[in-house]
Design a protein around this nucleic acid. Structure first.
Lengths: 251, 251
DNA sequence: GCCTCCAGAATTGTGCACAATCTGCGCGGT
DNA sequence: ACCGCGCAGATTGTGCACAATTCTGGAGGC
């Protein structure tokens, strides 16, 4: 930021550890960028220059390139050939699809959780309550970043309880993309934060009135989606293109 | 195959086109390997040496490396650091999870299809019937490879009709992983091929008796899973470990 | 004043050389 | 005879240099 010295290639730690240590460093970077996108330090459309990221994380450009490829596969960043990587900017259609996919998967998860033998295991109860406390704390502190992260983790926690790591993995991606959709389409106004919904969900799960937790989850997801402004005004550029699409050419 | 001349690095086409043409070449390779895995020309556990693949496809090793990274992300190949890439060998647990995930997603897809206004669009009817004919033909010709490919495409076709590209994309991965699971766990015996199930599904969809198509789909997926031998004898190594786990040490 | 075009800068893409690691095998010691 | 040790050979991992492309700013013409 201060000096514009491009000659220093940001040498990484002297002992360049290789092997397993590297892979964890990569997933660390993936997670780090993922979180930054989720809590909007990196808004949709942001250009992600390889060199800058390499410098920021103290790794080589190739490593960053690999990470970007992974993130692109998860639809969190968009890779445009010869143009670079950008934080993905979902279309309203895609946003709706993501929420629909979440409803499909999370309904199934809730149905499985409701089918679990009662009472729920102590481990589960403890984790649920612990997480609830964390969300409450974040809400009281008005720590928006923490709230966003915890909200995602809550849904993931439920997925893990359902005991299907494959579904949980799919949901992980969908949650990241939800964050992106929220960042792109959130209305200026309102946003009754979802900690309250989560509280009710936890209570319903523990209480086990058949169908209640599932219904609450669907309603919760609907609520979040409804708080978005998904009218189809994606981009000025695209609008112009559409408007002048069938203008006759003035030779 | 005939000569073992390793000195020739399999030069790619003289004019190394760059840009958009490259990305399509990559997805071509991904698809090609994916299909080879699906129809068992590449059984689970097969070592995928970068150099061999590069030679086979006439591209550089780096390109192959990128493709393998993508396939690994989709859990179709397993990447072991410093050891290389292998065709993934799902555990019985993972196989079950994949089929459960498919039931979750494909049930939702069928419910949406059943909710479609009737009669179905000509386009849909034509594609359904056309696909049915293809499957019949493959069955009559006993073309196992074609049957496997068409079977996957059938499920994907339904997903596309449901109009949610995100769900369809998720299902694409799950179908590939199903193929892997089938390759890994199929019983020697039987295998009443699923073309018949698909025929009935098409009929139920067109007929539109509420819930029938959805029920058939669930049953179909259950059938396919039941035809697998998912008893937990994943690996000899692990069996030994389990068997001798609580043997007293003979010092 | 505005548009077009072009050179230089910045950024991404790719081949290559070499380093790091794993595997298989032979050799010597006990 | 058996076990560890270590040395090739093969394979993967990574930094780097350079090629290709896009972007930017400004000069020149209309």
């Amino acid at each position: 930021m201060t000096t514009a010295a491009p000659a220093k290639p940001a040498r990484r730690t002297p002992l360049a550890r290789t092997g397993a240590a590297r892979s964890s460093a990569e997933s660390r970077i993936v997670r780090s960028i993922g979180e930054a996108i989720a809590d909007r330090r990196l808004p949709p459309g942001t250009k992600l220059t390889e060199e800058s990221l390499a410098e920021a994380f103290g790794v080589s450009r190739e490593r960053v390139r690999k990470v970007l490829l992974l993130l692109a596969q998860r639809r969190v960043v968009t890779l445009i050939p010869n143009r670079g990587a950008f934080v993905a900017k979902p279309s309203p259609k895609e946003a709706r699809e993501v929420f629909e996919a979440r409803r499909v998967i999370e309904r199934a998860i809730m149905e499985r959780l409701e089918r679990l033998p009662r009472p729920l295991s102590d481990d589960m109860l403890e984790k649920l309550r612990g997480h609830g406390a964390l969300e409450d704390a974040a809400e009281r502190a008005a720590d928006r970043k923490a709230m966003i992260r915890l909200s995602g983790q809550f849904h993931l926690l439920l997925a893990e309880f359902a005991g299907n790591a494959t579904l949980a993995g799919i949901l992980t991606d969908l949650i990241d993309r939800s964050s992106l959709a929220i960042a792109a389409f959130e209305r200026r106004s309102s946003h009754t934060c979802s900690a309250d919904d989560h509280r009710r969900l936890i209570a319903a799960l523990i209480g086990n009135r058949p169908g209640e937790a599932t219904a609450l989850m669907i309603e919760h997801l609907d609520d979040v989606e409804r708080q978005l402004d998904l009218e189809a005004k994606t981009d000025t550029r695209i609008d112009l293109k559409a408007i002048f699409a069938d203008e006759p050419e003035p030779t």
